[in-house]
C-alpha cells in the first residue's frame, strides 16, 4: 500500500511542478507566437494586395477571407487564403483579387510540401507571375505545352502538372466560395 501512495505522490508532484513551470513559459511565449502568426498573415495579405493599407477579416465563414482597404479607406479587393491537396500534401496559398472578384492581383504560396526542385517551382516567379492580372471569369484554366492564349489561361510547369493543377484548383475553389458569399451579400 505504501508503494502505491508513493507512486501516486511522485507522479502528482512531477506533474504539478512540470505543469506550473510550463504555464509560466507559455504565458511568456504565447503573445510572441501570436504576434509572429499575425505578422506573417498580414505580410501575406498586403503582398497579394499591393495597394492595401489596412484589412478586416470577414467573420462567420468556413475559410479565411480578408477585406483590404486602400489609402483613403476605399475597398481595393479581397485577400483569400485557401488550401487544398497538392502532389504530396496540403498546399496553402493566399490570393489577392479585385473587388468584383473577376481579376487576380497576386498569388502567394504560404505552405507546401511539394517535391523539391519540381513541384516547388510553383513558388518561383515564372509560375507565380502568370497569375498577375489574370481573369477569373470564366474560371482559371490550365494549359499544357502551348502558350496561354486566353486571359484566363496559365501554363503548367513541365514535369509538375499535378502541382500546377492543384494550385489552379485551390484558387478556383476559393474564388467560388467568395462568389457565393458575395451573392448572399455577406461581403
Amino acid at each position: 500500500m505504501k508503494i502505491v501512495i508513493r507512486m501516486i505522490l511522485t507522479l502528482t508532484i512531477i506533474g504539478v511542478v512540470a505543469g506550473g513551470f510550463l504555464a509560466n513559459v507559455a504565458q511568456w511565449a504565447n503573445p510572441l507566437i501570436e504576434a509572429n502568426k499575425k505578422a506573417e498573415t498580414e505580410k501575406a495579405i498586403f503582398l497579394v494586395q499591393p495597394d492595401g493599407k489596412s484589412y478586416q477579416q470577414i467573420k462567420n465563414t468556413n475559410f479565411e477571407i480578408y477585406k483590404v482597404f486602400g489609402e483613403n479607406n476605399e475597398l481595393v479587393g479581397y485577400s483569400i487564403a485557401h488550401e487544398g491537396n497538392g502532389f504530396q500534401g496540403k498546399i496553402r496559398l493566399m490570393v489577392g483579387v479585385s473587388s468584383d472578384l473577376n481579376k487576380i492581383k497576386q498569388l502567394e504560396i504560404l505552405d507546401q510540401v511539394e517535391t523539391p526542385g519540381l513541384g516547388t517551382l510553383i513558388l518561383e516567379p515564372p509560375f507565380r507571375k502568370q497569375f498577375s492580372d489574370l481573369s477569373t471569369d470564366p474560371k482559371v484554366n490550365l494549359v499544357k505545352g502551348v502558350e496561354p492564349s486566353k486571359p484566363n489561361e496559365i501554363q503548367s510547369i513541365t514535369g509538375a502538372t499535378i502541382s500546377s493543377k492543384a494550385v489552379v484548383e485551390i484558387i478556383n475553389k476559393g474564388i467560388e466560395k467568395a462568389r457565393i458569399l458575395k451573392e448572399r451579400g455577406a461581403l
Binding site: I14, A29, N36
Partner: peptide
C-alpha cells in the same frame, strides 16, 4: 512515466521558445 513527463516538459519549452523567438 516520470521520465516522459520530465522530457515532455523540456520539449514543450524548447518548442515554445523556438516558435516565439525563431519562427
Amino acid at each position: 512515466a516520470s521520465y516522459i513527463v520530465i522530457i515532455a516538459t523540456f520539449v514543450t519549452i524548447a518548442d515554445l521558445v523556438m516558435k516565439a523567438k525563431f519562427p
